[in-house]
């Protein structure tokens, strides 16, 4: 199979969906001439014109709000919030308008809106450009939260998101854009709300998503050499969580480590862990372990930034802890 980057995979998804459906258009800061802060929309302006690839003013609330208005009238906007750190600027639109409008109106409208954004640490950009805020979004009924880790999932999930009649927050990771992986030729879709077992194992289950999948797989490979068989579940969608896959894996291994980049307190892992408790407590042979981000604003210094998020080493330690 051909190998392309996460960035290229996303670009292909946008390109294919725009060419398939003229109702799809893109809007966001620096997405047209510049091609997106991380280059995901490069080339699309030339192909589709400025009517469908729109540079906007720096107006996050209006970007999401107008995306909603256009979606209500039948378009399928894909809007970009350059960094998830900026989501506070449009949180009212997202939480109070986008997520709730269908329910508040008794199901009499649809909101086929995709909000693309990216998060995560790794570029020493400091506290305003490195956060992982997915837990805020998981707390909003009415949207779905998608966080792909591999190029193949990024493409398949973005295409599905664009075709969904529900609002999707699609969170990319800045450290994944240059990663390469196999991506099938031609048309395919990846379902939302379905986790994927990226590595099978017997002794312990790692539940993870986004960039932490890559760290977890590295940790699993090292542990394998020490005779510890780790199953790595890539959740891919955080809202809704794929409880079935989680349950099946935990019933097999009886031990769980959650690996998440976001800050630990009231983070995504709290919900994931509680789901394990509710769904399959009786199958647990050890307390659930969270390997999570430190509860601090992201520091600039490269050594501190590394310490603020999980590492292959801390994941290995976490796994060993639940095996004690």
């Amino acid at each position: 199979m051909r190998e392309i980057t996460y960035r290229q995979a996303l670009n292909e998804a946008l390109d294919e969906e725009m060419s398939r459906d003229e109702k799809v258009f893109l809007m966001g800061e620096d997405i047209a001439i510049y091609g997106g802060a991380y280059g995901v929309t490069a080339g699309l302006l030339n192909k589709y014109g400025e009517e469908r690839v729109k540079d906007t003013p720096i107006s996050e609330a209006a970007i999401v709000g107008t995306g909603l208005g256009a979606a209500l009238l039948g378009f399928r906007p894909v809007v970009e919030i350059m960094y998830i750190d900026f989501i506070g600027l449009c949180m009212d639109q997202l939480n109070n308008q986008v997520a709730k409008i269908r329910y508040m109106f008794g199901g009499k409208c649809k909101v086929p809106l995709t909000i693309r954004t990216e998060g995560g640490a790794g570029r020493t950009l400091g506290a305003h450009h490195s956060q992982s805020l997915e837990a805020w979004l998981m707390h909003i009924p009415g949207i779905k939260v998608v966080m792909p880790a591999t190029p193949a999932d990024a493409k398949g999930l973005l295409k599905t998101s664009i075709r969904e009649d529900n609002p999707i927050v699609f969170i990319e990771h800045k450290m994944l854009y240059n990663t390469k992986g196999p991506v099938p030729d031609g048309e395919y879709l990846t379902p939302i709300g379905v986790a994927d077992i990226k590595k099978e194992g017997r002794d312990v289950t790692i539940l993870t998503y986004s960039r932490m999948l890559l760290f977890s797989l590295q940790a699993a490979e090292i542990l394998e050499k020490e005779g510890i068989s780790v199953e790595v579940v890539d959740l891919r969608t955080l809202l809704p969580l794929d409880k079935q896959t989680i349950k099946k894996s935990v019933m097999k291994t009886n031990r769980v480590v959650i690996v998440e980049e976001d800050t630990k307190t009231a983070g995504a892992g709290a919900e994931i862990g509680m789901t394990v408790v509710e769904e399959c407590f009786d199958y647990l042979d050890a307390p659930i372990k969270r390997v999570a981000g430190a509860d601090v604003p992201m520091p600039k210094a490269p050594n501190l930034e590394k310490l603020a998020i999980p590492s292959v080493e801390s994941i290995i330690e976490g796994v060993k802890e639940v095996l004690k």
């Binding site: 709000g65 909603l68 209500l72 906007p77 308008q97 508040m104 109106f105």
Partner: peptide
């Protein structure tokens, strides 16, 4: 709200309708 009548909704948030209205206008222009 009464979408069949073209009423895109009242709003519990002051200024909450500005984005929807402007986006609907963008859709109409497109």
């Amino acid at each position: 709200a009464d979408l069949n009548k073209g009423n895109l909704g009242a709003n519990g948030i002051v200024a909450g309708g500005l984005g929807i209205a402007t986006g609907a206008a963008l859709a109409l222009k497109m």
